[in-house]
Design a protein around this nucleic acid. Structure first.
Lengths: 161, 161
DNA sequence: GTGCATTTACTCGGATACCCATTGTCCGAGTCGGTGGGG
DNA sequence: CCCCACCGACTCGGACAATGGGTATCCGAGTAAATGCAC
């Protein structure tokens, strides 16, 4: 079970956007250059974030991506779901339908206690992610590393047009 | 992010083993036939469980697999880790090493706050899985579906040699 | 009848192909900013 | 000097390959039971 690389890129990129003026759009090329990432593939992840309503895109010169809503209203779960999809990691294939005493009318994704146990763990994971917003993360970073906001803005400004 | 199918097979198979005499070894073929699974591939998962010390294997006639320890001492996390590996889903690639103000000596898997947030969620997931043992699950199933133990034993007995 | 060597069949275990999802790349449609000419 | 139409360049967006991990399968090594024979 491995989470897509894109989640890490998306989280860091969104976090970087919180340190720029909210009305400033940043093109994929700059966001990619920031961490030396492949621009075309990062663009794909940003598209997913746009479809999820986390960032908004602007075409043409001076265009790019910006956060579509306030960092307070974007949770880590939102970002993860936008990239990875909403499906839970454990997908119950309803093995019990093939076992003894199976009832074809029962939805074993709900009834199977193995499935329920796995779902409980999944919910605990999701809850933890949903309780942290981008704003929380931003504040925590600024508390530990006060230079980050200016460093980030400076580097974006220094990147070639 | 998708969990391997083998986890579901392993959980159900281990659970089934709890309803058989502890000294009775069950060959892969029977465990597979129980849910109409491909035997050779299920065998691969059982090998992983054996390497993890969850089940023990016996070759030759009347051989097969049995639980290596008591159901009370086998957690759901043990089974998941045996199949999926111990690595966490989110793998920090240390993007910050490429960012401004990066310190090459720092291990950003520990220092990066994004990484830490994701790890917190991962730990919550693991804790939930570690708090449930096979014995808990077995008891819960018996409480909801009292016929399961005899149904299971009967079907195993009925499966062709 | 009993003990033993041989045979036999059954089991796991790892080595070997296959397939789909993630990764990675590219080019086209659309749009905004700049520019040049006219009023 | 100001306004407008055109041009150009920049951006996203989705369509198109390549790679790696999970899926599936097979055959061989080893073992325990069953068998047949000798005593």
């Amino acid at each position: 079970m491995r989470m897509s690389e894109g989640v890490e890129w998306a989280l860091h990129s969104c976090l970087n956007l919180t340190w720029l003026p909210p009305d400033q759009a940043v093109p994929t090329a700059k966001l990619a250059e920031f961490y030396e990432l492949p621009a075309a593939y990062l663009n794909k992840q940003l598209q997913a974030l746009a479809r999820a309503g986390i960032v908004s895109s602007t075409p043409g010169p001076r265009g790019g991506f910006r956060l579509a809503r306030s960092p307070e209203s974007i949770t880590l779960l939102d970002v993860v779901v936008a990239i990875e999809g909403a499906d839970e990691a454990f997908r119950c294939e309803q093995l019990l339908k093939r076992g003894p005493g199976a009832d074809p009318a029962v939805d074993y994704r709900q009834a199977c206690l193995v499935s329920r146990a796995m779902r409980r763990a999944d919910l605990a994971w999701r809850r933890e992610l949903a309780e942290q917003t981008l704003a929380d993360l931003k504040a925590e970073v600024e508390r530990h590393y006060p230079a980050t906001p200016s460093n980030t803005a400076n580097r974006f400004a220094a990147l070639r047009a």
